[in-house]
Design a protein around this nucleic acid. Structure first.
Lengths: 199, 199
DNA sequence: TTAATTTATTTAACACTGTTAAGTAAATGA
DNA sequence: TCATTTACTTAACAGTGTTAAATAAATTAA
């Protein structure tokens, strides 16, 4: 029976539609807006139908995560293919990584656990600037006798912060490293940036 | 009336108890476990009482966030006070930052939007390793003719990844920077690490 | 002390959430 | 045409944040 095939094809399509609908909802209203009933609305079914295609909400997120990794890998490969020197390839790949993160913001968030709902909160809270202020001052001192411009200090501060916050996030979310590797990355990064300041 | 003072003191105490209870619940069962009814249970009241002290759940998270920033700032100051040279101070401060993140994991999560519930998912998904594998290969090539050990490559990879993922996270959550600053941090970091590899 | 009023606290409810079981309509097979 | 499977929906459960109404307790006034 060819109708079996047609039905299977339709099922595969709905499975895909669920994913597309989910991503659409998230892009429009953020991750909090994503609910089974809204997905159902979007694909013009009722909520329980979704469970015929995904065992639960987590499975949908998992599939979006997989989709994200595949897309990112593809971007990295095309970036690499545009150069021959490894140094140029590496630079292009990390720029592609950067671009992916913002082009597919929602996917990147679910892939690496970047929560944005808290961002409204921490803003407008004066205490949130205390750590930066404290470290800022020391960077300025370290630069002496050269008096660094706002931009110069800013770049140094964010380089520090990025590498350390990045390493923390990766370890919290992904639990990937041995303590030794972490310490090594951390210490060499810090001393490297310090050297780049003191010259 | 002195009883007014006593009542005010009790109120301030309950306000504090709500925060303590919240943090306790999160530490025991993660952020998903935190609900108004569980907080109420912990402080031996019913849920609506909490709204006499905090306008909503978000206000509790906000207060925990503030608490976190104050604690972090204190840690940074004591770290700084233990040294005189700016370079040593800076190193000690960033190490204190690192230690704070893991000592007060839950606070750090709410301060900077580090989601951990997704970590169970991405694990055991082969696709999640594709980006790393792709970049790994290029790092190995960049090291040639020297054949890097597993550890050597790992440290370089995580240094790259940390600084870029960190910068991405910071911008998504806090969206603090001008595009120019971001590009500057990104490009100088990448070329800096590449130079540290090629010697 | 008793009555009136304010304060403290709880119960009940609303609109949501993810998820499951039972019921109903539609399509398929004999 | 009848029986059976498939497709889908309705109803329900336990949970969420939050608000309004009801009740208990404490305080003040007479």
């Amino acid at each position: 029976m060819a109708s079996k095939d047609r039905i299977l094809r339709l099922k595969e399509e709905t499975r895909c539609n669920i994913l597309d609908a989910s991503l659409k909802i998230v892009k429009e209203g953020g991750w909090d807006a994503l609910s089974m009933r809204k997905i159902a609305d979007e694909i013009e079914y009722t909520a329980p139908i979704i469970y015929e295609y995904y065992s639960n909400k987590g499975a949908i997120l998992l599939e979006l995560t997989r989709k994200g990794f595949l897309l990112l890998a593809k971007d990295l490969e095309t970036a690499k293919s545009k150069h021959r020197l490894p140094a140029k390839q590496l630079e292009a790949m990390w720029l592609a990584y950067w671009n992916f993160a913002f082009a597919e913001k929602e996917l990147y968030q679910v892939m690496y656990g970047v929560e944005t709902s808290c961002c409204e909160m921490a803003k407008k809270m004066p205490e949130s600037e205390m750590p930066m202020d404290l470290i800022w001052d020391v960077i300025v001192e370290l630069m002496l006798p050269h008096v660094g411009t706002e931009d110069e200090v800013c770049i140094k501060y964010y380089t520090f912060w990025s590498v350390i916050h990045g390493l923390i996030s990766i370890n919290m979310v992904n639990r990937g490293n041995t303590p030794e590797t972490n310490q090594e990355v951390l210490k060499t990064a810090i001393s490297g940036i310090i050297r780049s300041i003191t010259g």
